[in-house]
């Protein structure tokens, strides 16, 4: 479904628009640490939510993707510990009507996968960008985020498609 769109557009050099969240809890020794959480999107309708503190990127499909796919019935995820490169196929999402490959939005090592999805694949429809997360990748190179789209760029991308 999204195949044609893959090569369609590459985002311009998006200015990093980081979301600033409050710091760790007061009890923490890192009261003054400032975590920057960045959310970026691929042209293939994956999102990555990057936490500069943990260096973990949480990979999801977008809400637009889940609504296009319809009822998700099966999710195939990568094995923990796998080293992936940006653009590698790391899994697949199956709906009644279609199978869609998932590509790594960013390079790194798969740190964990969402085990809930094997029994509740419908989480991808209910909460694609939160509870229905796919996997967390220990990010090798933050700079790769610059090649991805921000929320506005992504919205423009799927609206023109």
């Amino acid at each position: 479904m999204f195949g044609l769109l893959r090569s369609a557009s590459r985002p311009g050099l998006a200015v990093l628009r980081a979301t600033r969240t409050t710091a760790a809890p007061l009890a923490s020794s890192r009261v003054f640490a400032r975590t920057i959480v960045t959310k970026r999107f691929t042209t293939d309708h994956e999102a990555v939510i990057y936490d500069s503190d943990t260096k973990l990127g949480t990979v999801t499909i977008t809400d637009y993707a889940q609504s296009s796919l319809g009822d998700v019935v099966f999710v195939e995820l990568p094995t923990v510990g796998t080293a992936v490169k940006q653009g590698d196929q790391i899994g697949a999402v199956e709906s009644v009507k279609a199978a869609s490959d998932i590509y790594a939005p960013i390079s790194g090592t798969v740190e964990s996968i969402n085990e809930e999805l094997s029994s509740q694949p419908g989480l991808l429809n209910k909460s694609p960008e939160q509870d229905g997360w796919l996997c967390k990748i220990k990010v090798a190179d933050e700079a790769e985020l610059d090649a991805l789209m921000d929320a506005e760029g992504y919205k423009a991308h799927y609206e023109q498609s």
Binding site: M1, F2, G3, R6, T42, D44, H45, E46, I61, A65, A92, V93, K97, A98, A99, S100, D101, I102, Y103
Partner: peptide, 8 residues
């Protein structure tokens, strides 16, 4: 994400 096989 890219669809490899879509509806028959």
């Amino acid at each position: 994400m890219s669809t490899t096989l879509v509806s028959t």
